[in-house]
Amino acid sequence: MRKQQRAEIVLKRLAELYPETPIPLDHRDPFTLLIAVLLSAQCTDKMVNRVTPALFDLADTPEQMRQQSVDAILEIIRPLGLAPKKAAAIAGLSQRLVDEFDGQVPQTFEGLESLPGVGHKTASVVMSQAFGHPAFPVDTHIHRLAQRWGLTDGKNVQQTERDLKALFPESSWNTLHLQIIFYGREYCTARGCDGTRCELCTTLYPNRRKPVETKKA
């Protein structure tokens, strides 16, 4: 089976399984989505959703957030991984948004990636989910599954992103990246499937017998 054929099977099956793709991070607007995505680094969405209500009750705009001390932010987000760095980044980016972007979340990759704590993956999520700009954020789930499904050789997340963008129509990117995440969490988990067990892995590689050793992001 050719790579493009595998991609077409993935696209069709995931559309059947997940016709609706709600954003798994609770948020109110582009700013709160930006904060939630930043907090999700090395942390589950479920954990992020536990702390953001209190954080957004404290401050849910750049103007309000910049008035909070790093310690006040840290006290709320302490249960999350990398909390001290994230607290400093939230305070810093909120100040930058007010000083340089009139309190608005920029709608460009360049603007987003200039903010403290915001890398390409975070910017891609905000661009796609807050502003509808075609993007293909690659997290650990997508990086792992793209290798298991033979869509990339997975040297790094940058290559995985390029390979997936080349295989799938641009119009599908914003929905598909969420569908892959949903499938990875439900059926093709890091420990629950090794490339030989779930429906898509066995459909795409029916003769595969050995586990797939995926390269880390």
Rank of each mutant, 00 (worst) to 15 (best):
H143N: 02
H141F: 01
R66K: 15
I180P: 05
S128P: 11
A166D: 13
P137L: 03
T122P: 05
P134I: 07
K121V: 05
P134Q: 05
Q159M: 13
V138G: 03
A135L: 00
G103P: 00
W149Q: 01
K85V: 13
G111I: 05
T160C: 13
Q64N: 12
D163C: 08
V98Y: 10
V118S: 02
I90C: 03
V125L: 04
D153I: 10
R148Y: 07
I90E: 00
K165Q: 15
R96H: 13
I76M: 01
A89H: 12
E100N: 13
G150R: 00
R66P: 08
V126E: 01
Q147S: 09
T160P: 07
I90H: 03
K155N: 13
D71N: 14
K155P: 06
A89V: 00
M65P: 04
E170R: 15
V126H: 04
H120S: 13
H141T: 06
T140G: 08
Q64F: 11
L82K: 02
L151Q: 02
W173N: 03
I76Y: 05
N156P: 04
V157S: 15
P137A: 06
K86P: 00
A83S: 15
N156K: 07
H177Y: 06
V126I: 15
F182A: 10
D163F: 07
D153Y: 10
R162D: 12
L97D: 08
R162H: 11
K165H: 08
S124L: 10
V70N: 02
E63N: 13
F101V: 10
A87I: 07
M65S: 06
K121I: 02
D71A: 15
D139R: 03
W149E: 07
R96E: 15
L97A: 09
T122I: 13
P134S: 04
S124Q: 06
L178I: 12
E170C: 10
